[in-house]
Design a binder for these strands. Structure first.
Lengths: 218, 218
DNA sequence: CCCTAATTTTGCGTGGCCCGCACTTTTTTG
DNA sequence: CAAAAAAGTGCGGGCCACGCAAAATTAGGG
């Protein structure tokens, strides 16, 4: 009979999530401002008004905090995939689910693109970023498997991994070029995957010089 | 006229490579023995008979040292790809080059599989591992682009990224299962990629329970 | 053979991070 | 409102990455 919705999440839970969110946000904001190497854990903690020790109760490194948004996407992704209509071909479902998830957030903010590029130069952070994507990939694979009704487990993993590849490539392309929008690129890459690899034909190039490797970017 | 081959690499260079190799090897061996968390940088350095400070002249973290073998593969991969016959379809070239590279090393050692599994549980290491694969991916993309004679840059990246996905999936499958060999799996996955995604058809599964996420393994 | 310049290794010191532990503060529950 | 549960906090220790400058090693002519 009580009309007020007793919030399913206990106060504790809400505060906890809020704190986590605030820390992640602060970590990202500060990193974009000054560059990750100039942000100490202490700074992030102070920004949120919490002790440095507490920061480590939520994240085990600042890189993890910065990347936590990536891994939080898995939840939306799973729901989107499971919500696709019954008879739809599997690949179409996956494609739509992924696109849906990334549209929900809107095009990433252009204003920060230079800073993001700079940020991704940080080695540790790239590691954590890839790691986060791997986490998403895992959940995606499980969801695909469930959705496909027990199809070959290996192929499900491959599919998930492949989708994540497309996302990463589209993202890198987005922040490395000036104008190209993210979503259309992603969609195009996903379509490319659907038709298979042999679209491209071979033949050695004429004369380009050998580029060295090092590790300039992504 | 001098018949002895004057080693192209100066003594300096040889010692350097040797040291690097020794450090990487020691790092891997010790990690497999005791688990990465029980290996200090000092231990690795001592094992090779060098000061801890020197270790950091070669690698900026022990995780990096452990994973350096992965990134060293890029060289062989590039050569293998560029050595493929002229007219061969691009995808076939890529596939063969990758398989060639991984056959060269032989099947990974079965004896250590349990330890490897344990090792991959380490979060930091997984990050560095993924990072290493990303480096290989980048070189592969460049090489593909060169080989394809200036094809769409984005698609080259996608192809490289996709190949690396297959490798990672095959590898994880290898160390998570008991008997399945690595190379045949890899080959199968690459073929799967060639034909495109829609091989699998959809339809929701019957009743499986929702698995939680956390981050149990890879 | 030896001397000099270039390069590498090393010791030391600094700043920072991660985390276990015990203690305090806050929230929950009965 | 009191006891219990859970989260925040301060302290201390161990480790790591790295800048710097001094020693050790190598390279290449005289």
């Amino acid at each position: 009979m009580p009309p007020e919705e007793p919030p399913k999440l206990t106060l504790r839970e809400r505060k906890k999530r809020e704190a986590r969110r605030a820390l992640a946000q602060a970590a990202l904001r500060l990193s974009l401002d000054r560059g990750l190497e100039n942000v100490r854990v202490e700074d992030i903690a102070t920004e949120v008004g919490v002790s440095p020790r507490t920061f480590n109760n939520y994240f085990s490194s600042k890189e993890q905090a910065v990347c936590s948004m990536v891994v939080d996407r898995h939840e939306g992704m799973r729901e989107a995939l499971l919500a696709r209509p019954e008879g739809e071909p599997l690949w179409e479902s996956v494609k739509q689910a992924v696109i849906e998830q990334y549209s929900r957030e809107g095009e990433p903010d252009r204003a920060y693109v230079a800073r993001i590029r700079e940020l991704m130069g940080q080695l540790m952070l790239r590691g954590e970023f890839l790691n986060a994507h791997a986490a998403v990939e895992r959940v995606l694979a499980e969801t695909i498997a469930k959705r496909a009704g027990g199809a070959d487990h290996l192929l499900c993993r491959l599919m998930a991994s492949t989708v994540e590849s497309a996302v990463r490539v589209a993202f890198v392309n987005w922040f490395m070029t000036e104008g190209e929008p993210f979503l259309p690129t992603l969609e195009r890459l996903l379509d490319e995957l659907a038709t298979g690899m042999p679209t491209l034909t071979g033949g050695t190039a004429p004369n380009t010089t050998t580029t060295s490797l090092g590790e300039p970017l992504c």
